[in-house]
């Protein structure tokens, strides 16, 4: 399950096929981030800034699921965004398989995200005008795969997440749990090393949330998964749970 590969995948991050179990997928080293600061420098001396992360260091080995917990504003989402390359921290290193993606250009970071990172949002963020299959195939468009290959891979992934018979349905025709499973299939489209999930069960009922968590557990066997959640059931699937408070790592269990 979830072992479909994408042809010709190369990016600034080295692809070490077959070494996944033995390598560190993600490493945050002394990461500090201040909102209101730009490119690591403050825009002006009197501009009000909010420090979201303070000297955060986290390591996520391949094949591990790490949970992030903490109150609102503790920095969970900021860590996820930094890992996903959506945010460049003010200071510190964000290494993905040994490459500091914080030091890359926007274009390179986008390419890293395309090949190595899958993102699952709390609110799914599927494109309503596209079918489930087209949503799953979306990350593959930029990879230059022929349409037939994209469709085949998206169909397989939808089958893997139990939505083989929903491939032509649009998001508006799917339940919340089905939408989240489509979003997970989309995150897996390029067979990434790292999956980041922000409150993946936040909009789901308990039964549906459990099914989604089983999926995430399955996914996490051969890649690194970072999950941010308030929900204990969600955090229970993690191999390690990191508690954040006021932008600092408060506890690791």
């Amino acid at each position: 399950m979830f072992n479909h590969t994408v042809r010709g995948s190369r990016s600034p991050v080295r692809d070490r096929a077959g070494e996944r179990e033995s390598t560190t997928a993600v490493r945050l080293d002394g990461v500090t981030h201040e909102y209101g600061a730009s490119g690591g420098r403050l825009r002006s001396s009197d501009e009000r800034t909010v420090t979201a992360l303070r000297d955060v260091s986290i390591e996520v080995p391949m094949g591990t699921t790490v949970g992030l917990e903490g109150p609102s504003g503790s920095g969970k989402s900021t860590v996820l965004h930094a890992v996903a390359g959506l945010l460049v921290p003010t200071a510190g290193r964000v290494e993905l398989r040994g490459t500091d993606i914080a030091a890359l250009s926007d274009a390179e970071r986008t390419r890293v995200r395309r090949h190595h990172i899958g993102i699952v949002f709390q609110r799914f963020h599927l494109l309503p005008s596209l079918s489930a299959r087209a949503n799953v195939a979306l990350p593959l468009v930029q990879s230059g795969l022929p349409r037939s290959d994209r469709r085949e891979r998206a169909t397989n992934l939808l089958h893997d997440v139990g939505l083989g018979d929903r491939s032509t349905h649009r998001p508006g025709e799917l339940s919340g749990g089905e939408r989240q499973r489509v979003a997970i299939a989309r995150a897996l489209a390029t067979d990434p090393d790292v999956i980041v999930a922000d409150e993946p069960t936040g909009e789901l009922d308990t039964a549906t949330g459990t099914a989604v968590l089983e999926l995430l557990t399955d996914i996490g066997r051969d890649r690194a998964v970072v999950v941010a959640s308030h929900d204990e059931a969600t955090l229970d699937v993690a191999d390690r749970v990191i508690t954040l408070c006021d932008g600092r790592v408060d506890d690791v269990r």
């Binding site: 996903a84 959506l86 926007d106 274009a107 986008t110 390419r111 995200r113 395309r114 090949h115 993102i119 949002f121 963020h125 599927l126 494109l127 979306l138 990350p139 468009v141 930029q142 989309r186 489209a189 390029t190």
Partner: peptide, 11 residues
Amino acid sequence: LAVLESVGFPT
């Protein structure tokens, strides 16, 4: 556009 960026569509 944000979703496209998040799944790796460059500018």
